[in-house]
Design a protein around this nucleic acid. Structure first.
Lengths: 270, 270
DNA sequence: CGGTCAGTTGATGCCCATCAAAACCTGTGG
DNA sequence: CCACAGGTTTTGATGGGCATCAACTGACCG
């Protein structure tokens, strides 16, 4: 039995239910807001208001997705790109009945943008928990990019950020043990959520099971559990049912060797 | 003592010295050839001959680089992009006196293209062995991309390929042991070298030490040595002084679970 | 011919895999 | 309200991959 510790405070209550948000305002203004969330991570001078509006106007087929629903299949020829509005998604690579999670998407991320230029994607994209998405046709995307070179740069840049996140994962997998890997993942999520104004300093709420954490860290579920237990013992953080309750963020970032530099966060001056 | 096995044939002699190539023909045609090598990995309809020529014409400051020379520093503001003409380079992330290798560049790769849009890079780029590079100013790059949207797409696409390679590394680190990781790295290198017509089916020649292999696989140098020994024992491949002498490529790819799909190789019909 | 560096080998202990089983939570239906 | 079913979390025991310390070999070089 582990001592409850200071960490286990009542951080559960103040959450805002995604479904509640999703049904509050009308479709168009809501999508515009998500495009803004996407652009929040780009230099704010990069794209004209005009370009953002055009992009938002092409998004369609907004819909709810269910937990574990595969949103884009590996190898399949893609004809549209999917934007994640609410919830989380995994990039997974399956092989020999095993699932490797190679990346996590947060609201405001394009899920299969690389499929636009490559025609297909090299991995599956699977919803983690219930969420909402919207789509944009590749054809229309093409025309839009032809007339808005800035937008193309912004999207290219977002691909580069994805790659930088991948490199950070590689470094963490190569050099850190399981508890640090888990801590690093939640540090990354918190930073990325902050970039779109969705972070809560007292909790990182996710639908991730310990099996999911295990497949992100390349360890067994049993060991992921023990790693979670170690973070709890060290009073760095408590993780219960997917929600990360931080003790002291500074201590956690230090423990996980988390340096947000690679996320190229844009200071928002507006 | 390990049995020498069929693998250890005299595969060392027929190599072509990079320096020899580099001094054979005149500067301009040589650079044009390297641009072709870069473009060989893109759909061959993607870029007009004209765009390729323009790109080649902007490359300058071709020079030799020495082993372990840092070509781009993490955090530093970049004003030009570097193209690797000959040799190899590592993407490394240092932390606490430890070096993680998060990627390998082969001839024909842009080394710090992401620095063009992000302003700086999140890691160091270090020459592995002697090599040759050429540079292109960001300013001129900018103008060129403005007038050649196809070229922008081609470069964006190459960024997406980098990300796909990263994901493959993540998957390998999460699910495979050290011998398989090493085998996978050489499978990847061979495939990427094939894409530019530089592969030799009998040997993958690199300047990598076992320390380098260890830092790519996230294991200690001692263990990297034992992993190399295991590949030798299994008669899958012999690795001596950085050169990988394959037994049966089919068996190796199967052992490493290597599936080249993620490299999106373009079938060259010309 | 001694120095340096890459490669090799052995011994000990930690991180983690695997098998197994129990405790827990949450939603469901009686 | 309780009983039940299912998935998730937790815990224990045993073995393998890998880290670490240490020593030794072999190749290259001034």
């Amino acid at each position: 039995m582990v001592a409850p510790s200071i960490i286990t405070r009542s951080f559960r209550s103040p959450s805002i239910d995604p479904e509640t948000i999703a049904t509050q305002d009308s479709g168009d203004s809501r999508i515009a807001r998500h495009i803004d969330a996407f652009l929040a991570r780009q230099p704010h001078h990069a794209l004209s208001k005009n370009g953002a509006e055009k992009l938002a106007s092409l998004l369609r087929d907004e819909r709810a997705v269910e937990d574990r629903e595969t949103l884009s299949h590996r190898g399949e020829t893609l004809t549209q790109a999917v934007l994640l509005l609410e919830g989380f998604a995994f990039r997974t690579i399956k092989r020999d009945e095993q699932r490797a999670i190679v990346g996590i998407s947060v609201p405001g991320d394009f899920l299969d943008l690389h499929g636009f230029l490559l025609g297909r994607i090299d991995h599956d994209v699977v919803a983690a928990g219930a969420g909402r998405v919207a789509c944009i046709d590749h054809d229309q995307f093409n025309s839009l990019l032809d007339e808005s070179p800035d937008l193309a740069r912004v999207l290219w840049r977002s691909s580069l950020l994805d790659a930088a996140v991948h490199r950070s994962w590689i470094q963490t997998l190569e050099k850190h043990d399981a508890p640090r890997r888990i801590a690093h993942i939640f540090c990354e999520l918190q930073a990325r959520l902050e970039m779109t104004g969705r972070a809560n300093p007292h909790a990182v709420r996710t639908p991730f099971t310990q099996f999911d954490l295990a497949d992100m860290c390349g360890v067994s579920a049993v060991h992921a559990n023990r790693a979670v237990g170690k973070l709890r013992e060290m009073e760095l953080a408590d993780i219960r049912r997917g929600t990360f309750y931080p003790g002291d963020w500074e201590a956690i970032r230090n423990y996980a060797r988390f340096d947000p530099d690679y996320l190229f966060a844009v200071s928002r001056t507006n």
